[in-house]
């Protein structure tokens, strides 16, 4: 805790000193951090690699975008709805997916997310098709760079605190028990299917919060929010940062976004640089950025 309080204080004071652009970049970092941390709940605690988390990010974002533009809801009030809809999609997709394991789980989550993407991409009457929903009025608070910064920081901090408590709770131990030895977990009375589904739904709901924030950041919603490359961003951030550490995915996301902004200001070949960085990290630093800080103590 000694490290985190000053870090939080610095993050709270930053918008007072920084110009608009770096504040916006940091905000994007917080959003991806929340998305990657949500993904990591399924990846680390359940031991399942989801390639479909863009589905929950995207449905959360589109719920907010549609409620604001079609029903005239104030932006901030759409948060519960975005969480609920993302959780519902996670419930349906998870219901089918968590029965399978390994590569089949990865492919099934990918298939469902791509199915939703295909529908959003083509349903011009409802979702705007491949034009997306541009020019969403998100209110003066979320329009100001500092306002959105604090909103994203608050939701990220709340999300991370929630994940921290979950990690230490009996539920966290139960999830890891199912991950490590399904047969034994079942023998002591745990229900692997129910636990996996619960973890998956919580993860989807958190990803929906990130989607809700993304709408304000871009003041638009696009089908790309549901495309498989969006899911890949969460995976990269989580593994880059170190999925074993609670803060690893968030650190990875911040590094990913900051590096992206730095490189994009200098060259258009950001994917090339990212690809080379990933090659280098996978081949030489397999335990991620958090791996440099120290090992997570072996628990439960």
């Amino acid at each position: 805790m000694r490290v985190w309080l000053p870090a939080l204080l610095i993050l709270l004071l930053l918008p007072l000193f920084l110009p608009r652009y770096p504040v916006e970049v940091l905000t994007q970092g917080f959003i991806l951090a929340l998305f990657a941390s949500a993904f990591n709940l399924v990846f680390f605690q359940l031991g399942l690699l989801s390639f479909g988390h863009a589905a929950f990010f995207g449905t959360g974002a589109y719920t907010t975008a549609l409620l604001v533009t079609k029903a005239g809801w104030p932006y901030l009030l759409t948060l519960p709805a975005a969480v609920l809809v993302a959780a519902l999609f996670a419930l349906v997709i998870g219901f089918f997916s968590v029965r399978t394991s390994r590569i089949y789980f990865t492919m099934l989550t990918l298939a469902f997310a791509q199915l939703l993407w295909a529908i959003v991409h083509k349903w011009y009457a409802f979702t705007g098709g491949d034009n997306g929903i541009p020019g969403i009025p998100v209110g003066s608070f979320a329009t100001s760079a500092a306002g959105l910064y604090y909103l994203a920081l608050a939701l990220l901090a709340a999300g991370l605190y929630f994940l921290y408590r979950l990690d230490r709770s009996p539920l966290g131990y139960a999830l890891r028990a199912v991950r490590d030895n399904e047969a034994r977990a079942e023998a002591i009375g745990l229900s692997p299917f129910a636990l996996r589904l619960l973890g998956f739904v919580i993860s989807g709901a958190l990803a929906g919060v990130a989607g809700f924030l993304q709408v304000a950041w871009q003041r638009s919603a696009f089908p790309d929010f549901l495309y498989w490359t969006k899911s890949a961003e969460a995976i990269i951030a989580a593994i880059l940062g170190g999925s074993e550490h609670l803060l690893g995915p968030a650190l990875g996301a911040l590094a990913f976004v900051e590096l992206g902004a730095f490189v994009q200001a200098r060259t258009e070949y950001w994917p090339l640089v990212l690809g080379l960085v990933l090659l280098f990290l996978v081949l030489f630093f397999p335990r991620g950025l958090a791996g440099l800080l120290g090992r997570r103590d072996a628990r439960g």
């Binding site: 890949a232 995976i235 593994i239 090339l272 690809g275 080379l276 990933l278 090659l279 996978v282």
Partner: peptide
């Protein structure tokens, strides 16, 4: 991740 890096 490695093959995704190759894609990029």
């Amino acid at each position: 991740l490695l093959t995704y890096a190759l894609l990029l």
